[in-house]
Design a protein around this nucleic acid. Structure first.
Lengths: 145, 145
DNA sequence: TATCATTAGTTGATATATCAATTATTAATC
DNA sequence: GATTAATAATTGATATATCAACTAATGATA
């Protein structure tokens, strides 16, 4: 049985594109902000905008395993980006809050991220982006078990 | 500055789709073959088809760091999928060869992979796939520094 | 209200990602 | 032919991915 060579598939193209973007975005962030990863940056944005999110919900948004997120949060606390406090309404969960250091970072991020996205999507129409989003959404749904 | 929320972006859609596909593909492989990852499976296919590839070239095809691939190969040798022998023409590189165990696996893989891809791409036209591939290719090129 | 199921989060084990530094070999240049 | 540059692969340090097993708290139900 002859299958299409992996590097010719759409899946290869998808991985290739997202890895290139992540690498580029991380570089651009690192140029201006020290000691933070792309995912940590996104985590800060999410926490700031939706402070009520549970870690599990945050994990899903960031495409991370709960276990990974636990360790990521732990590291972000250690690195002084986030503080964790008890949530009196539900003792299973925690409240995550940005530190001042993180607030300063979050203030800088939008320009960087905006610029990264603009660079990555240069010359690509919004209409095409929507087509791609829909197709990717279909792939995702097709893969639900 | 208000930027588009990360989860609304095309990058989020890309990550979401590829992660769903990888998870699905891994599950389907695991159902039929024990003790091998999706990436290791792809590595076997590449090695079988292009035995002359260096580890660095292989790494690029699999979207892995050279360091990651070194460890992956080491593990595949340990797990009895691959043997490494000296390359007399260039002592810096190695020859990678599939073991019998791996040959049996590689014989089973095409059906599984074919089926996985078909499931993931169900209802999506080839024409649309090409559009997406092109757009992803553009993103990749835009992100080259 | 006692039992059971669900939810939120953690931990251990193992594999992989990433960057930088390093070794060994080969290629290029003078 | 000696020096330098480039290539192939490895290693160390640190972070993350993944699965399974686990604790603790809350919710549902009988």
């Amino acid at each position: 049985m002859e299958i299409q060579h992996p590097s010719e598939t759409i899946f290869h193209a998808i991985e290739s594109a997202i890895k290139a973007y992540r690498k580029y975005a991380q570089q651009k962030i690192s140029e201006q902000i020290e000691g933070i990863t792309l995912d940590q940056s996104l985590a800060l944005i999410y926490i700031k905008k939706h402070p009520e999110l549970t870690q599990n919900e945050l994990a899903e948004l960031l495409f991370k395993d709960n276990a990974s997120l636990t360790r990521m949060i732990k590291l972000m606390v250690k690195n002084g980006f986030v503080t964790r406090t008890i949530n009196d309404e539900d003792l299973r969960r925690y409240k995550l809050t940005l530190t001042k250091k993180a607030e300063i970072i979050v203030a800088k991020l939008p320009q960087i991220i905006q610029s990264n996205r603009a660079t990555a999507l240069d010359g690509i129409t919004l209409a095409d982006q929507e087509v791609v989003k829909e197709l990717l959404h279909d792939i995702k749904n097709n893969c639900k078990i």
